[in-house]
Simulated assay, not measured.
Amino acid sequence: MNAMTQIGEPPELKKFSGLQRAAALMLALGQEHGAPIWQQLTTEEIRELSSAIAQLGRVPAAVVEHLLISFSGEVSSMSTLHGSFETTERLLAGMLPDDRVKEIMEDIRGPSGRTMWDKLSNVSETVLAAYLKNEYPQTVAVILHKLRSDHAARVLSELPRDLATDVVMRMLRMDTVQKDVIQQVEHTLKSEFMSNLSRAQRRDPHESMAEMFNALDRTTEESMLTALDARAPESAEKIRALMFTFDDLGKLLPTAIQVIVRNCNKRELALALKGATEEIKTLFLSGMTERAAKLLRDDMAAMGPVRARDCEEAQGNLVRLAKTLGDRGEIILADPKGDEAVIY
């Protein structure tokens, strides 16, 4: 887009960055004419361009006209192009020695093709880090070396500090990784991590519904479950069993309560406990220092009467915080269905 001709530019064009110009052009081309271009973009490029389109706002007609004229002028002056692994390899073969071309193409594709590393780059850093923290530091270093730097950085920040430091030291000392090492790592990732991830992603729809119901206010939640009782009683029972509610926080270990207290908004905690049972109030207050517990009691007393809806909203936020901490592995959330099982 930066190569577009500067002749006859409308003054409004200066306000648009290169990405915004590309977004405006793709919006103007529409679904039919833009589809061939979208198909050539990577997932990351599609995300970036889609985000720019969503935030574009109004584009003056003069700018749209200029972008279309410039684009059609450039396209008409060149022959049809098609980028692929094969055309890339042919291009490099005319400039570099065979062994260098082979090395570069294997780095792009990966010894087993690029699908493996493409899939890995789309895995959440939290999920990937949870798997890697049990691997040898050298293996982790090889994998992070193959990931995009921004994704590798996010994964690194999720690893335990000592392991992360060890991995960084190994990455600093790493020379060119041998092909058989990469193949072995890819095989392990495919057979263990990706296959397990695929199975884990085939979730029971009742689990997703339970999470959604957890996010509802209590009145709506009870209304929906009552309606579901009449139409699909078995499903309603499964959803209730899978839901993690504010009352279930009372089953957490004292250490988990302490972590929640350290991470929560104290005003919201006071509001949540205002409408809680005495057992849960005692549990949370016992997880605090004597001074902090006294301050919280004072805050609750100073609130006076509060709306039940506000208490329920604060309790819902506390449940969501607990589940987030569970996702990070900082606490263990007891499964309402059993004393021994865990859901995180």
Rank of each mutant, 00 (worst) to 15 (best):
S70N: 15
T42I: 03
I37T: 12
V123E: 02
L172F: 09
M4E: 13
I108F: 13
D248W: 01
Q178D: 04
T220W: 04
R21H: 07
D339Q: 14
E222N: 10
V127G: 08
R58L: 13
D98G: 15
L19A: 13
E192M: 10
L295Q: 15
E211I: 10
L156T: 11
T42V: 01
G304N: 06
L252Y: 00
S121M: 04
M95S: 03
D335C: 00
R90H: 14
F71R: 00
I104R: 02
K251V: 00
L325I: 11
S124Q: 14
N317S: 15
A314G: 01
L68S: 01
G83V: 09
T43Q: 08
T165I: 14
E103M: 06
M105G: 04
E279M: 12
R58I: 14
V168Y: 05
S112N: 14
S76W: 07
T324M: 13
F85M: 14
D217N: 11
M105R: 00
V181W: 02
E211W: 08
N2V: 13
S72A: 15
K337E: 10
Q184F: 10
V319T: 01
R109N: 03
F85C: 03
E103A: 04
F85S: 11
R309G: 11
L295G: 13
G275S: 10
L333R: 03
V127N: 13
I280N: 13
M4Y: 15
K337G: 12
T126I: 10
E312P: 08
G338D: 09
T176V: 12
V261R: 00
A24W: 09
I260Q: 00
R203T: 12
S70V: 07
C264L: 08
D335N: 02
Q55N: 09
M95I: 07
A230Y: 08
G34L: 07
S286Y: 00
L92Q: 02
E192H: 07
L147V: 06
I53R: 09
Q178H: 09
S70C: 14
D327S: 12
R328W: 07
T126P: 05
L156P: 05
R58M: 15
L49T: 03
D310N: 05
M303R: 03
G338Q: 06
M26F: 12
T87A: 11
Q40G: 12
N122L: 14
R291M: 15
S235I: 14
S112I: 07
V155A: 03
T289Q: 07
E211G: 05
M174D: 10
E211K: 07
E211P: 08
C311Q: 06
R199L: 04
L132N: 00
G338R: 07
A153W: 05
E279V: 14
E125M: 01
S223Q: 15
I37F: 15
I104H: 08
V181P: 03
L285E: 12
L172Q: 11
D204W: 01
T5Y: 13
L296S: 05
A334Q: 09
A54I: 02
F193S: 02
E12R: 02
S121V: 04
V185F: 00
T277H: 05
R161P: 00
A334V: 14
L269M: 01
